[in-house]
Measured scan of single mutants.
Amino acid sequence: MEQGTVKWFNAEKGSGFIERENGDDVFVHFSAIQGDGFKSLDEGQAVTFDVEEGQRGPQAANVQKA
């Protein structure tokens, strides 16, 4: 798993970007967020995640709040 920080997340659209510790920013969709309840992330929040190849390039998967 990688570690990173939420660069921004739009709760209305359900997507945003995570700033990786090593590498380019990666797209995140709300469906990749693990946990119960409303799936959203806050700017500056620390997260851990896997990276998968999506239709438009790398994207975060199995996102967990650190």
Rank of each mutant, 00 (worst) to 15 (best):
D42G: 11
V51M: 09
F9G: 05
E43L: 12
A66Y: 10
Q34H: 10
S15P: 02
G14M: 02
E43K: 15
T5I: 14
F49E: 00
V26R: 01
D25Q: 12
Q45V: 10
F27Y: 10
G23C: 05
F27D: 05
P58D: 05
D42A: 14
G14F: 00
D36K: 12
F9H: 05
A61H: 10
E53L: 14
I18V: 04
F49A: 02
G54M: 08
A46E: 10
G44I: 02
A66N: 12
K7P: 03
D42Q: 15
D36A: 12
P58K: 10
F27A: 03
V26H: 01
A46W: 14
A11G: 09
A61R: 13
Q3N: 12
E52F: 14
D25A: 08
P58N: 07
N62A: 04
Q59V: 11
V47N: 01
G23R: 06
V47R: 01
N10Q: 05
A66R: 12
T48P: 01
D36Y: 10
K7I: 07
E12F: 12
F30T: 06
E21P: 12
D25I: 13
E2S: 10
M1N: 12
D24R: 13
Q59R: 11
E2G: 07
T48G: 04
A46I: 13
V47Q: 00
F30R: 09
G37V: 05
N22E: 08
A60E: 03
S40G: 08
N22K: 10
G35V: 10
K65Q: 09
S15T: 14
S15R: 10
W8Y: 09
G44H: 07
V6M: 00
V51H: 00
N62R: 09
E12R: 13
A61W: 00
F9Q: 05
G35M: 12
E43C: 15
E53N: 12
F27S: 03
E43P: 15
D42R: 15
F49M: 04
K7E: 05
K65R: 11
E43M: 14
E43Q: 15
V63A: 01
R56C: 14
G54A: 07
Q3V: 13
W8I: 05
G16F: 03
T5K: 14
K7Q: 04
G4I: 00
A66H: 11
D42E: 15
N62Q: 05
K39W: 06
A66L: 15
E12L: 13
K13S: 11
A60I: 01
P58C: 08
D50I: 14
T48L: 13
V6I: 09
D50Y: 15
K65G: 08
T48D: 03
Q45A: 10
G23M: 08
D24G: 13
E21M: 12
A66P: 07
A46P: 11
G4V: 00
G57E: 03
T5E: 06
K39A: 06
F27T: 03
D24A: 14
L41F: 04
F30C: 09
V28W: 03
D25T: 11
V28N: 02
F27W: 09
R56H: 13
K13A: 10
D36M: 11
